[in-house]
Write a protein that binds this DNA or RNA. Structure first.
Lengths: 172, 172
DNA sequence: ATGAATGCAAAGGTTTTGCACCCCC
DNA sequence: GGGGGTGCAAAACCTTTGCATTCAT
């Protein structure tokens, strides 16, 4: 199907780009579209062109975006859609379990990502701002133990490591 | 010295208040004042009344404050000091290793805390917004291992658990 | 048809910046 | 005395809100 992945690509920090951003195929897009429609109908809300275009853009991007970044992307591809609609849609998409807040980036902005993923934590590359995911069961278990011992009931957590990339060109 | 700690106090969520906020004594305040002066001199910057008053207020509060909260506290106690100076001072105090960003609270605001502390992570109580600290060596070690294995060099991390308090009044 | 959603613009809230004046060294 | 620091106000940003209009059902 693809003919382009033979040569290795690199991130700005020099790291080989191993993980391609998720590129949902048409089928998957339709699954999500159905999910959005169902949610909206169930809530007595309306399935609008704008809501789907915004969701689609997020799904196709597949990565990590802050609200402002999303506004810009939307403006670029769908100049008719206003910023207010993007902000309002972010909330709807979070409620619809299509989007979720994932972390606060190095600039203090909330970053959103697709909801449709197993829990993971993040590493923010300080050299190229790329966001990587990791999941470690030992950490999760130990965290649960600690929180429980302090008599809390966890709702959610954010574990973000800000780090330099070992691949960074040493001359820089 | 104190005559007040005989009766247990409670946080808004119902949890007994075990940890009193650090109340630096005069001696400690002077240590910090010296540290600030040294830093400023070393950088060719100036030790001003405002910078010290802001630092002192943070030190006396001892807790977790966001920028806006600090502006309000400063306005309350030192009405002559403007908001711009507070924002500018936060940066200076972070550079001087007196303050550091510690976490993002439940409202998405950056919370600052005293730098002069061993590393720890945080639990944000969703019932009363109080911020608790924890430190767990197993988690730290495992995190280092994971990050290293992915070829990153950690600069800092933030591990925040948002949780409900088991002490919360069940009737609420 | 009708109530929700949208786009626009205005308002809100927070943080930064420009500039004249002030004060620490 | 001179250069950084401060206060004020304005600007810059990001996000939310009000309202007339449009659109999905």
């Amino acid at each position: 199907m693809s003919k382009s992945s033979s040569s290795t690509r690199f991130l700005p920090c020099g790291r080989p780009k191993i993980f391609e951003s998720r590129q949902p195929n048409q089928e998957l897009l339709e699954v999500w579209q159905t999910q959005l429609k169902s949610y909206l109908i169930a809530q007595g809300l309306k399935y609008t062109h704008q809501r789907w275009k915004i969701a689609e853009l997020i799904l196709l991007t597949g990565g990590h975006l802050d609200a402002q970044g999303l506004v810009e992307q939307v403006k670029k591809k769908h100049s008719g859609i206003g910023a207010a609609t993007v902000y309002r849609s972010i909330k709807v998409l979070c409620d619809a379990s299509i989007l979720k807040e994932s972390l606060t980036d190095a600039n203090g902005r909330v970053v959103y990502e697709l909801y449709d993923q197993a829990h993971h934590d993040h590493i923010v590359c300080l050299d190229c701002d790329e966001i990587f995911e990791f999941h470690d069961e030992k950490i999760e278990l130990q965290q649960s133990a600690v929180v429980q011992q302090l008599d809390f009931k966890e709702v959610r957590h954010r574990h973000v490591v800000y780090a330099h990339c070992s691949f960074r060109d040493a001359s820089r």
